[in-house]
């Protein structure tokens, strides 16, 4: 087969976020990845902070003093909100990726109905559950505490 060397045109990470003409599930996909990376960053920071205990009581006290400021409190809430979304959307993804909620194969008749339409209520439910969890977290972390 004839092979030619073309100009590279792969979108890369721009493919996650670029466009602006995408559907709801595309944004959920991007947000799921971003919140996942955010949670990973938090875990790494968490390890660094707790590891300071090994350096002695003074180092531990200084680390606790640093992370108890207002910025970290808001950051802590953002981590919780990211968790709420990631967990709720993750449950949706587990269900969908096991073939639940996507519907059966049908003969395509225009205007086409796709698996996106079939699982839309699941997506909205996951978003609502994530939002409810995030609101409860806001009350607990930012108001009551």
């Amino acid at each position: 087969m004839l092979r030619v060397q073309g100009f590279p045109n792969r979108l890369g990470v721009r493919g996650w976020v670029g466009g602006g003409r995408w559907g709801m599930e595309r944004y959920l996909y991007t947000l799921h990845r971003l919140t996942g990376l955010g949670l990973l960053a938090y875990f790494l920071l968490h390890i660094v902070v707790t590891a300071s205990r090994a350096l002695g009581e003074g180092a531990w006290a200084r680390a606790m003093d640093t992370v108890s400021g207002g910025v970290f409190k808001v950051g802590e809430y953002l981590v919780f909100a990211a968790f709420a979304f990631h967990a709720a959307n993750g449950i949706r993804l587990v269900l969908v990726e096991l073939g639940f909620g996507v519907g059966r194969p049908i003969e395509p008749v225009y205007p086409y109905k796709t698996s996106l339409d079939a699982q839309r209520s699941l997506a909205i439910g996951a978003l609502a559950a994530g939002a409810a969890l995030a609101i409860l977290g806001a009350v607990e972390l930012l108001v009551l505490r």
């Binding site: 599930e25 595309r26 969908v96 194969p105 796709t114 698996s115």
Partner: peptide
């Protein structure tokens, strides 16, 4: 991970996202 864009742009209503999940 079910971004679903393949099914949205498919000009023939093939719904590749559904095929992949199944």
């Amino acid at each position: 991970h079910f971004a679903g864009e393949c099914s949205r742009v498919c000009p023939k209503g093939v719904d590749p996202a559904k095929a992949i999940q199944l």
